[in-house]
């Protein structure tokens, strides 16, 4: 295909991505370096019969004029990144010098919004991804051994948790674990503590969200692994059997190595997706116990006062986080590409 023809074919989609993905990234980076204008203050001297008083008032007109003239705000460089709502450099260094032990340091670090969000996001991501893969593999192996008439039905029901809107799935589970819902009731009954409420306890809320995350994503891993099992070469399994391999050994030394590229694929996709955990938190109404970077952005943008700059700074840090997660893949692809070119 000629360059020219390629250009015209690619133009619409390229333009869409340029305008609505690439430009917003530039816009977010710019926005994160500007803070909203402060109100314009005026000092007026009022002289009355009892002497003169100076009064400081907000000049509404001047403030509005300034905000309209420069909607971005005033340039503050990287200040927003370092303030209390984000990296909180000053607070962290103070904590560091004041805390006697590491435990105390991390305890109090958890009170700062950014670190609180990071601790949940990372815990969530690194606990769910291995469990999703393990659970997905088990389901795939079990379904693969079923009679073929049953397979379709099982796959149908397995797809449901994955296909459902994340926030709706979270709500459905949230209503069930409510202390008046069926699972909540059961848990209260089992623990024998009538006061127990999942909503009030941070660890239980974390566990609930993690369980929801596994429930939601295991079907994806299952479907991918199940498809991989269909391409498993029969002769390898037969050879292993002739060599006397037990069923577990067959899985360990034949099936799992065959599925390894798919495991990498699933873990990559799920790392990226789970790093943006957010709808779950809204659905579970869990912001008091668990937040994530995405949730902070949503919260900043949503309220009465739209804190664009603060949201933009968090966005940039989220993008950097995604880039770090993605970098091994990019490096590997780059190596493959260079290897092919030579």
């Amino acid at each position: 295909m000629k360059h020219r023809t390629f250009f015209w074919f690619f133009l619409p989609t390229g333009l869409a991505m340029l305008l609505f993905i690439a430009m917003p990234i530039v816009s977010v980076v710019t926005q994160s370096m500007f803070a909203p204008h402060e109100a314009v203050l005026e000092t007026v001297e009022n002289c009355g019969p009892f002497g003169c008083q100076t009064e400081t008032t907000v000049n509404q007109d001047a403030t509005r004029a300034l905000r309209d003239a420069e909607p971005l705000g005033r340039f503050v460089g990287l200040d927003i990144y370092f303030d209390r709502g984000h990296l909180a450099v000053a607070e962290v260094s103070e904590l560091w010098s004041n805390s006697e032990s590491f435990g105390g340091f991390f305890d109090r670090l958890g009170n700062l919004p950014f670190y609180r969000a990071m601790s949940f996001t990372l815990t969530y991501t690194f606990i769910t991804v291995p469990l999703i893969i393990g659970f997905g593999l088990l389901i795939a192996l079990a379904v693969n051994s079923l009679h073929r008439h049953l397979k379709g039905l099982v796959i149908f029901f397995s797809l449901l948790p994955m296909i459902v809107t994340p926030i709706i799935g979270a709500l459905i589970l949230f209503w069930m674990i409510d202390s008046r819902g069926i699972i909540g009731n059961l848990i209260v009954h089992l623990s024998g503590d009538p006061q127990l409420s999942l909503k009030a306890s941070t660890p239980l809320m974390w566990i609930s969200i993690i369980i929801y995350g596994i429930w939601h994503s295991a079907p994806f891993a299952f479907v991918v692994f199940y498809a991989g099992l269909q391409t498993l070469p029969k002769d390898q399994i037969e050879a292993a059997q002739i060599d006397g391999a037990t069923r577990l050994q067959q899985i360990r030394y034949v099936v799992v190595p065959h599925l390894m590229p798919l495991v990498t694929f699933v873990s990559l996709i799920k790392l990226m997706d789970n790093f943006r955990v957010f709808e779950e938190i809204v659905g579970f109404n869990a912001q008091a116990h668990a937040t994530s970077l995405s949730w902070i952005i949503y919260n900043d943008l949503g309220g009465e006062t739209r804190q664009l700059s603060s949201a933009a700074a968090t966005s940039v840090m989220t993008i950097i986080g995604v880039a770090i997660l993605l970098s091994p893949v990019l490096v590997r692809t780059w190596r493959d590409f260079k290897g092919r070119a030579h």
């Binding site: 917003p24 990234i25 926005q31 995405s294 949503y298 989220t318 993008i319």
Partner: peptide, 8 residues
């Protein structure tokens, strides 16, 4: 993540 673009 789409939410990061929304700020832009």
């Amino acid at each position: 993540p789409p939410i990061t673009l929304v700020a832009g």
